[in-house]
Design a protein around this nucleic acid. Sequence first.
DNA 1: TATGCGTAGT
Length: 637
Amino acid sequence: MAAAKVTASAAAPATRVSAVFRSNQELTRLARSGQLAAARRLFEEMPRRNVVSYNAMLSALARHGPLADARRLFDEMPRRNVISWNVMITACSHHGHVTDARELFDAMPARDDFSWTLMVSCYTRAGELGLAREVLDRMPGEKCAACYNAMISGYAKNGRFDDAVTLLHEMPVPDLVSWNSVLAGLTRNEGMSRSVQFFNEMPEKDLVSWNLMLEGYAGRMNEARELFDRMPERNVVAWNAMLAGYVHLSHMEEAYKLFTEMPDQNSISWTTMVSGYVHAGKLQEAKDVLNKMPFDSVTAKTALMHGYLRSRRIDDARKLFDGLAVRDAVCWNTMISGYVQCGMLDEAMVLFQQMLNKDMVSWNTMIAGYALYGQMPLQHFMHMRRDSKRADWSTYACCFSACANLAALHVGRQFHSLVVRSGHISGSFSGNALISFYAKCGRILEARQVFDEMERHDIVSWNALIVGYASNGNGADAILVFRKMEANDIRPDEVTLVGVLSACSHAGLIDEGLHFFNSMTKLYSLKPVAEHYACMVDLLGRAGKLREAFELVQGMQMEPNAGVWGALLGACRVHKNHELAQLAAEKLFQLEPRKTSNYVLLSNISAEAGNWNEAEKVRFLIKERNVHKPPGLAGST
DNA sequence: TATGCGTAGT
C-alpha cells in the first residue's frame, strides 16, 4: 500500500492533479444540480481534495443542505480562501442568519468585491437598508458596480425610489443593470404609469428592460402585445412573459397558440404551460404537456403535484414526488402541505422529519396543520428544532403567526408559556409576533400586556400594538399609543401610518384621518403608498363620501392596487352605489382574475340592487374564467 | 472548476 502510494506520487503528479480536477468538476456539477447525496459520496471517496473540492462541497451544502452541515464543513476545512468565506456568507444570508453573515464578514482575512456585494445584498434581503448602506459606504477604494446595484435594487424593492435614483446618479458609471434594478422595483411595486415614464427616460435599454415592462403588463394583454410588437428584438424571456400573461388570465387556448408559435421553448416555457393547465383545472392537459416536455424539471412536476393534491389525488402526487431525481424545498413543502390539507398529519410528519433543508414554509405548514386539527405536540417541535438553535426566535415567531392566522388562541397561549420558559421573550422578534398574535385573536389587553412587559420596543413593536388597536376597532387607543410613540422620539414609518389611518377609519375620525394623511409627507417625510390610499378610501367610504373616495383614487400618483379598489367596492356595497361598484369590480377582475371573493361581492351587490341579470352574468364569469375557490374551502369537488 | 438568480412551481 505504502509503496504504491510513493510510486504514484513520484511517477506523475500531473495526472494526479488532473484527477482531482476532474473530480472537482463532477462535484461542481452535482452541487449545481442539487444532487446532494451523490455529491457527499463523491467528496467522501476522493483520495485527495484541494480547496476547490471543499468549496464545491460547501456550496452544495450551502444551497441544498441544512445550514449546520455547511458550517461544520467550513469549520473543518484545512485551508480557506476568499471564496470559501463568500460561500459561507451566502449560505447564512439565504437562511436569514444576518448576524452570522456579518460575523463572518468581519472575521475574514481578506475581502474581494464579491464579499462586499454579498454583505450589502444580505442586509437588503433582510430589509436592513441602513446597515446595507453603511457597508456600501465603508467599502474602500473604487466601489464595484455590482455593489452599487445590490444597494439600488434593495432600495427599489422596498419602494424607496428616490434613494435608488439618487444612488444611481452617484455612480461613476451607472450601467444598464443599475437602471434595470430601479425599473424592476417600479414594475413590480408601483404599477405601470410610473414605470412607463421611467422606461422612457432611460438613456439606453436592453432586452432585460423591455422584458421587465412586458412582465409588468401581465394580464393586460392588449398593452403587452403592443409593447411586444414594438420590441427591437425578442428572446425566449420575452415570449415567456407573454405566455405567462395569457396563463395568468387562464386563457389557455391563446397560451397554447403562442407556445406553438415560439421560435424556441425552454424549460420555463414548458413549466408555465403545465402550471397554466393546473390552475385552469385541466389536469389531463397538464400531464400531457409534462410528458412531452424535453427537460426534467422539478418545478413543472411540483406544479402538477400541486394540481393532484388540490383534487385530493394523493397517490398520483406521491408517485410524482417519489420519482423526482432532485428534490428542493418547494416540492417537499408542496407534498407535506398536501398531506396536511387532506388531514393526513402522520404522513405529513414522516415527510417533514425526512426533509433535510426545512425552511420557514415547512415549519409553518406543519405547525399550522397541527393547529388546524386542534393538536399541537409542542415539546416535540421544540426538540426537533435543536438542529438549528440560532433560529429559535423565528420558530416562535412563525408559531405565533400560524396561531394568529387560525385564531388558535389556546395553542398560542401554550406557545407563549414556552417562550417565557425558554427565555426568548426578551428578543423583540418573538415579542412582536406575540403582540400581533393576541391582537389578531381579539385579545388586545393581553397584547398590551406583552408590550408593557417587553424590555425594549422597536418600531415593529409599536406598529404591532397600533395596528392591533386599530383592527380591534379601538381607534382612540391606537392614536393614544401613536402619540406616546412620538413622545418617545420613535420616527413613524409607513406601517405606522397604515395603522393610524385605519384607526381613524374604524373610529369614524374623518377629520383626524384626513389630517394625518395630508400631513404625512410634511410631518414624517413619508410618501403615501397604495395601502394608505386604501385606508383613506375605506375611511371616506364608511362616511358615505363615495365621490371623494373615488376622486382620491383618480388622483393617485401610482397605479391603484387591488386593496384600493377592494376598499372602494366594499364601500359601494354598504352605500348601494351600483355604478361605481361595477367600475371598481372591473378593475379588480383585471388585477386579481382568480380571486373568487371579488366576483361574489359584485354578484351580491347586483342582486341587492335587484339587478338579477347582472348578478347572473357575474356568476357566469366565475365559471367561464375557471375561478377556483381556495383549497381547503373547496369541499369535495 | 467554486460565489451576487431577468422569466416558472409551495
